[in-house]
């Protein structure tokens, strides 16, 4: 659906996007992550044809963005970061105007507008003036606008920014519904959102793509060794010595807790050494109350990748 070949964008004072290449297949939901100023919005604006690139090539739905910008734009539904709308227009008016611009046929226009209004929960506010709507409703109007011409590809730049938690959940559910029919490229700062929705994650940092994979693979590649947490009742020195002698296990920290238990953090070579540790506790006769493998959150992974660009190699 999207093919990006070596795209670079230079601003007079800085390099915003540096030789970026990636692909998004039809039907995928891709989360586009990166710290502020990493080049997310610039990349998205180039994908929509709004910003010209300095060098490189972009293909959307088989059309080159420089040669057939009109064809590309017909197939893209784009929600810009700031969700720009005309405050003096009414919701219905605005959606009709946008549908006209996007070439939705007159015969289908009314039905299509009603459909997106229903999808986005706007049926009750059709005659309200946009400037008087709350931020959440405005965001929905922007989303409805990006859907009104039934695009193959949806590009959403931070669709949930500025919404309250309830509205975020609603937008997330909406995006999940949309994923059945559209290819979606979504940028956001809210990582649980990406964990909940996206099949694949693209991470951009300082203008370069530093990671592109599924969430599980990212964790696996980044954390080759697993971290196991264990709480037992045993002498610190004895327990550390016993565990360290085992193949592939290495005690990182050992803390004596106030209630007399010993908490150990153990690095394991392969992912699952918990059974061996359990057997050890049984043979040594240590009471055991916790034995778990640490779960990495996307947040950990994200921070690690963007702070330390070499992490993925």
């Amino acid at each position: 659906m999207i093919k990006v070949f070596g795209v670079t964008k230079k601003y007079p004072a800085r390099l915003a996007v540096d030789d970026v290449s990636f692909e998004v297949a039809r039907g995928e939901i891709v989360g586009f992550l990166g710290p502020n100023g990493a080049g997310k919005t610039t990349t998205m604006r180039m994908l929509t044809g709004y910003l010209p690139m300095t060098s490189g090539r972009i293909e959307v739905a088989g059309y080159d963005i420089c040669e057939d910008p009109q064809e590309v734009r017909r197939r893209i539904g784009y929600l810009p970061e700031s969700c720009p709308l005309y405050p003096e227009m009414r919701v219905d008016e605005y959606l009709r105007f946008r549908a006209e611009l996007k070439g939705v046929r007159l015969s289908a226009r009314k039905a299509k507008i009603n459909e997106v209004k229903e999808q986005c929960g706007l049926t009750d506010v059709g005659s309200r003036i946009i400037g008087q709507l709350s931020k959440g409703y405005r965001q929905r109007v922007g989303l409805a606008d990006s859907l009104v011409h039934d695009p193959d590809l949806l590009i959403l730049d931070e669709p949930t920014v500025g919404l309250d938690p309830y509205q975020i959940r609603q937008v997330r559910e909406l995006i999940q519904q949309l994923a059945k029919r559209h290819t979606i490229l979504l940028s956001t700062h809210i990582l649980p959102e990406v964990e909940a929705i996206c099949e694949r994650i693209l991470i951009i940092n300082e203008g370069k793509i530093v990671a592109s994979d599924t969430e599980a693979n990212l964790h696996r590649r980044l954390h080759a060794c697993a971290m196991i947490e264990m709480e037992i009742q045993a002498g610190k020195v004895v327990a550390m010595a016993a565990i360290n002698t085992m193949e592939g296990l290495d005690v990182r920290t050992a803390t004596e807790l106030d209630d007399g238990w010993l908490r150990l953090e153990i690095e394991a070579d392969s992912s699952d050494m918990r059974v061996e540790l359990f057997n050890l506790a049984v043979t040594e006769g240590w009471p055991l109350r916790e034995l778990s493998e640490q779960e990495y959150s996307l947040e950990d992974t994200f921070v690690q990748i963007t702070r330390n660009p070499g992490a993925m190699q």
Partner: peptide, 14 residues
């Protein structure tokens, strides 16, 4: 100012 130029120029409008 409103950013609507971006919204306009990402539709098939010339």
């Amino acid at each position: 100012k409103l950013g609507t130029l971006e919204a306009l120029l990402t539709t098939p409008v010339k």
